[in-house]
Design a protein around this nucleic acid. Structure first.
Ligand code: MN
Ligand code: MN
Ligand code: MN
Ligand code: MN
Lengths: 227, 227
DNA sequence: ACAAATTTTTAGATTTGTCTAAATTTTAAT
DNA sequence: ATTAAAATTTAGACAAATCTAAAAATTTGT
């Protein structure tokens, strides 16, 4: 049994668990629960327990029985590398192959598991080192650093404030297609004109034109306020 | 249990067996033996027998106990689709990401299993529908047709005949790097000047310059004779 | 504080793909 | 035509990843 067999081989399934744990444990450093992982991954809690033990064994997570798991530094680096690949492939599909932003996620779920450092670094260079993916999510650099933009939900913006649309919270194909149909795209300028108390819908100005949008939409669009 | 679950889902392992059976059964329509598959795939004959039954069950092969397997039409189409993906990805890596021809095979072995018709068709278009991969092997079209070039081994060419180097038989990284070092590349013009009876080595003219090459090399280079 | 509800783990089974060792069939040699 | 050798299959086992059902621990509600 060689060194790399113990420490560096990661299965596709392990990678998916690590990525999910990263996303669920995002901004809080406390433990991620078995049930939360099971629900997110559409699997059973008992399967999660088994995998938690294996991931702990391999050094990706700290596992406290009945409490949950948290990623180790090694686990965080592994997660960032997978997320980097996922988001770079999404950019590639949109920029080089004319995929629309609602089509890229499923394919990226496969491509993120391809193991070749040279491949992903070349894709990165081909794309001229993009900082954000097609949904506005930041792309970790080779050494795991990335800039989360200062952004807020459109539904949380004050009246009269202006900004630029920089991301989506809901990344479902249905929502993304809806945005396309209504000419709402990342990079668009936005100004909040009026808020309707009754249903929290908004009157906004987008790229010059006036628009009425529901709370459902506004609470899934990220805006970066103008300085 | 849905239709597509029975008939269209193919695992990575099944795909690798199908591809191997295709290559081993190439120009002869007779059965491919269990041992040949096992040796090629670096696995055990008993594993091959198990898989042969499963592939027969799924309609990819005809399996005759103790005789071997042959691909069905469905199996051939499946194999061609995998080979198409493999070779298109190899071209992509060389043409768009500046990989050298000795680096592409391992990555293509992973990429060939990505399931997205739109993805591979877009890659095909991006590359302007190449007919051959970096090693000179033909790329099947979407509907499974491809042109095998009329070619012969350099070692089989008659004296004084001229041609163009169009492929390699040995695709090992060691051989490909050797060719690079000696400035032997696909597309080069070649003329056989002299054959040495003693060791079957050749004096050739390549792109104007004279060159001495061993039988080992000559018997792994494919040449298309000039009309 | 203690019972009830919820969460999590364990025990045991299943599927996929693999292995070793033994049995069977085919092929080759005398 | 037998026998020996080689190829192939079967039987039984194992690791990975999952599941169901039951047991154990934790959390919640009064
Ligand atoms: Mn995605
Ligand atoms: Mn994304
Ligand atoms: Mn190849
Ligand atoms: Mn090739």
């Amino acid at each position: 049994m060689y060194f790399w067999e113990n420490y560096f081989f990661v299965t596709r399934s392990e990678e998916n668990y690590i990525k999910t744990i990263f996303h669920l444990g995002d901004n809080s450093s406390d433990l991620v629960s078995t049930n939360a992982i099971a629900e997110q991954m559409d699997t059973k809690p008992s399967s999660v327990t088994d995998m938690a033990k294996k991931l702990a064994e391999k050094g990706f997570v700290n596992y406290k029985k009945y409490q949950g798991v948290s990623l180790t530094d090694f686990g965080i680096n592994t997660a960032l590398s997978i997320i980097r690949k996922h988001r770079l492939w999404e950019v590639f599909l949109v920029e080089k192959l004319d995929f629309s932003w609602d089509e890229v996620h499923e394919v990226a779920e496969q491509l993120e598991h391809i193991k070749s450092e040279k491949l992903i670094d070349s894709i990165d260079a081909l794309l001229d080192f993009p900082k954000y993916d097609p949904h506005g999510d930041p792309i970790p650099s080779k050494d795991g650093k990335f800039m989360e933009r200062h952004k807020q939900l459109l539904s949380d913006m004050a009246l009269k404030t202006e900004g630029v649309c920089v991301g989506v919270k809901d990344t479902s194909a249905a929502f993304l297609k809806f945005l396309d149909k209504n000419r709402i795209a990342l990079g668009n300028t936005i100004k909040v004109l009026e808020k309707e108390d009754f249903d929290q819908s908004l009157h906004i100005q987008m790229e010059g034109k006036e628009l009425h949008i529901s709370h459902q939409i506004a609470s899934n669009l990220y805006i970066k306020k103008n300085d």
